[in-house]
Design a protein around this nucleic acid. Structure first.
Lengths: 340, 340
DNA sequence: GTGCTGAGGTCATACGTATGACTCCCGCCA
DNA sequence: TGGCGGGAGTCATACGTATGACCTCAGCAC
């Protein structure tokens, strides 16, 4: 005797309804918590029991189709192996989970588009993007065709361009750092900047120069934010005839590379040359001496960015632009310049 | 004169059909590349033109609902700030994108469940999970109720337990490392192990001990895989009365902590004590001297894991278990033991 | 002329949910 | 007794897609 259609797959709201002896609509009302004057407490109880008994979970695709929202957002970052963006993701994912949103990560590796396929599976309601690798329009375009008009919040991007932003106050951080370095007595500064010049790096440099006071930049170079990039550029800078007494880097990993350059040149840190980083990535405390740097609240950056994006989705308003203050961390890599 | 219902939202396949002068079914057939003898080339052309003209993109929710598959998988890892798991994600995301799948990351922070809400938005077809933080069953359970029977592939997990696995050959790596260290002449070994004892760490330790030969472990401790954890444990190990000549760590970051302990005790690396790490995370080359370690192919691990999972989804078979070989990287942190 | 075949499409329906419109019934007031 | 309000649910439909079942011809053999 062939049993007629064993339900097999996951239970649906219809199954729950049958089990509870009510209609599918009622189940839906109960689950949406919209039964204020429409369903009796006893019935609510019955539905809840049925849900538990069957282990029912709503079908997200159906819900999305009905509501026109996927409850998923995309996080666009340069490659995720950087501890900074890992932390950004952590904060963002935390907030998203609390508000019942999923996060799909979209790593833009040097501008390579991961989903050239127009039938990409990414069904998303909005985009949270770091500008480290791109301008706002590029970000949206890179998320695939048809996404140009998605709600967007940018991280570490120039404010006032029509897109809500959540930023680290890199200008304040750099100013504080500059004042500290100058206060130590340094006057001849070498500057190692990021090779990719997104807004956050331009802002760092402008703030640094504005706060130099009696000191001046006597040598300057750009390099990728890598160990080897930092090492090679620092080799040149430290050998500069202008004899800088401090090397101010845009990034901790660059600074770690600078340590290697200093060692290769027989210069001690900080006795012969001071070195500073930026970001307080985990490298900062791994190196010896530990690195003087500016802590950027990466986790909070992700969290506040996600909050703004979800607010934007819910209310149409992301709220005012956010600026998160960093913190100068003085450690062992800085000292007054050697006399003479 | 009120215009009757401006289409407003994104175009649907129905709009494309109207534009091309065909039925919605035909559009669907063309887009699914299933028109071998059912649609004329001219019509196909017309549909394609309409798609391009309207900028049509299929609605993923509707497609998922119809097909019963979301084209999204979940990647479960301990917190993503680790460079290792960042790399795993990179490999996994790459493969997923190529096969038109989305990836949502689920970080299990110390067992904290990010989506306790049974209405979680995660609509996924399968799970790719690292075992670093949990056993297979726990992984599925932690992905939320109702997910217990999802297709699953585990990374760095014990094979032969009914779940397909993709592993680094940590045993081979540790054996090679042990032979190298013993070959240098070391006989008294200190061993710094991971505090959380998942399979991969048990495997490392077993392989190490089996390959010790004439050497022996004279001091041993466990610590979390952090800088401070490594430093504190190493302080004790290096001060051991048994005077170990080499410290073999389960992790690069631990090893970086051990450097700090050695320095605090006035011991030079490698002249007074050799140190080895495991993983070849980016810390390995940041420290000075650079760390002798075993490279684990994290990107490839993610990529092969994702390949296995998608094969499992497509064909019902994940293929045979995969084992990826590592590589011993001899750098500056190891030397023969000081004579005497 | 009839029947058949196959190419080229269309029709109708189902996936599972959410919700506006509707029904039914009970109690109560005039 | 008629009517009415509101509490408790149900009905029907739409979201956008994919697909099995149908439909319509033109061409051709008999």
């Amino acid at each position: 005797m062939p049993s007629p259609q064993p339900p097999a797959g996951r239970p649906t709201s219809k199954d729950v309804a049958k089990h509870a002896g009510v209609s599918q609509s009622t189940v839906s009302l109960v689950l949406a918590e919209k039964w204020r004057g429409r369903v009796s407490p006893a019935t609510v109880e019955a539905v809840r029991d049925a849900v538990a008994a069957l282990g029912y979970r709503p079908n997200t695709s159906a819900r999305s189709l009905r509501l026109g929202r996927t409850h998923t957002v995309m996080l666009v970052v340069p490659v995720l192996t950087s501890p900074f963006f890992g932390a950004v993701h952590t904060g963002a994912a935390q907030v998203a989970a609390e508000r019942d949103f999923g996060v799909v990560v979209y790593p833009t590796r040097d501008g390579v588009d991961l989903t050239p396929n127009p039938f990409s599976s990414a069904a998303i309601d909005g985009v949270l993007a770091s500008s480290m690798a791109a301008e706002p329009l590029d970000v949206l375009r890179s998320a695939g065709p048809g996404t140009e008009d998605l709600p967007l919040v940018m991280l570490d991007s120039e404010p006032g361009r029509g897109v809500p932003t959540v930023n680290d106050d890199v200008a304040d951080g750099m100013r504080t750092l500059a004042e500290y370095v100058v206060g130590l007595g340094h006057r001849r500064v070498a500057r190692l900047r990021s090779a990719v010049q997104t807004w956050t790096f331009r802002a760092r440099d402008a703030a640094f120069r504005a706060a130099l006071g009696p000191a001046e930049v006597v040598a300057e170079a750009t390099a990728p934010l890598t160990l080897d990039g930092g090492r090679e550029a620092a080799l040149t800078l430290l050998a500069s005839p202008a004899r800088p007494t401090v090397l101010v880097c845009d990034d901790d990993l660059q600074a770690a590379g600078a340590y290697k350059a200093a060692r290769a040149l027989g210069r001690r840190v900080p006795e012969d040359v001071s070195v500073t980083g930026f970001g307080d990535l985990r490298y900062a405390r791994v190196v010896e001496p530990e690195l003087t740097t500016v802590r950027l609240p990466a986790v909070e950056l992700g969290a506040r960015g996600m909050t703004a994006l979800l607010d934007l989705l819910d209310t149409g308003d992301a709220g005012p632009d956010v600026v998160l203050t960093g913190e100068l961390l003085v450690r062992g890599s800085t000292a007054p310049p050697a006399s003479g």
